[in-house]
């Protein structure tokens, strides 16, 4: 496997334990996986099954005790912290359940924020295209507190899309939305995966959302039990 950069994501025997002795929690217990480019993969499992820890390791938000994560042929944990942060900003888009928008910035500013962090020149036309695709063209100047839940999450999706990351990681992105908005956001994310050729890895406990995925990975007690 090594430096085969055609594979978008490869996990090699990942291990992450918390606590010790009696309280040892095997959050991720010797997990190996390969994820296909341009596909929507859902990770399902009960709460406490280790799926969030797994996603954090994939995204380089947390370092594993053992094992490796390869993204486009790069062993991400071989990077020093500052290089890892830079790699993460360029290659990985995150979408969280609670949106994580900056309240003092408007929609447009929130969306271009990750580009500014790397001194990348945002191409106005490309950003406009993403925003219109996401349906927020008339909300560019709006502040986050004036948005509905669905609009907030759509802003977060646009923010994850503008950097054109290699992979988008989403942790229960529709967890805070009502069922109709959930369907709208999901149909949007799904078609963005197709339109922009994005690779999406999403944690969900919702059966209906898992059905929309190209592949479902079930996690229990830190292990992949079904995929």
């Amino acid at each position: 496997m090594k430096t085969d950069s055609s594979k978008i994501l490869v996990l090699e025997d990942l291990v992450k334990y918390y606590g010790s002795g009696e309280n040892l929690v095997r959050a991720v217990d010797h997990t190996s996986l390969e994820i296909e480019r341009g596909k929507f993969t859902a990770i399902v499992g009960r709460s406490g099954s280790g799926k969030s820890t797994l996603l954090h390791l994939i995204g380089g938000l947390d370092r594993p005790d053992e094992g490796k994560v390869w993204i486009e042929g790069k062993d991400i944990f071989s990077l020093k912290d500052d290089r890892l942060a830079e790699f993460r900003r360029k290659k990985i888009g995150f979408i969280f359940q609670d949106f994580n928008l900056i309240p003092s910035l408007n929609v447009w500013e929130n969306i271009v924020l990750p580009l500014g962090l790397d001194n990348r020149k945002p191409k106005k036309q490309d950003i406009k295209e993403v925003i219109s695709r996401i349906g927020l063209t008339d909300k560019e100047e709006t502040m986050p507190n004036a948005l509905s839940g669905g609009q907030k999450q759509r802003t977060a999706i646009a923010r994850a899309l503008v950097t054109r990351p290699a992979i988008i990681l989403a942790d229960e992105p529709t967890g805070n939305l009502d069922s109709q908005t959930e369907l709208e956001v999901m149909s949007l994310m799904k078609s963005c995966v197709t339109d922009f050729g994005q690779t999406l890895v999403m944690i969900t406990h919702d059966e209906m959302i898992a059905q929309m995925a190209d592949r479902v990975i079930e996690v229990a007690d830190g292990k992949v039990v079904n995929c």
Partner: peptide
């Protein structure tokens, strides 16, 4: 069964559309 369809669908894309996008970085 819940089916959704967008009001305004964009032109359908071929499922293998994998063109990578790049930004000029400096």
């Amino acid at each position: 069964f819940k089916v959704t369809l967008p009001h305004h669908s964009r032109t359908p894309v071929s499922p293998n559309n994998l063109l990578p996008f790049t930004y000029s970085s400096n």
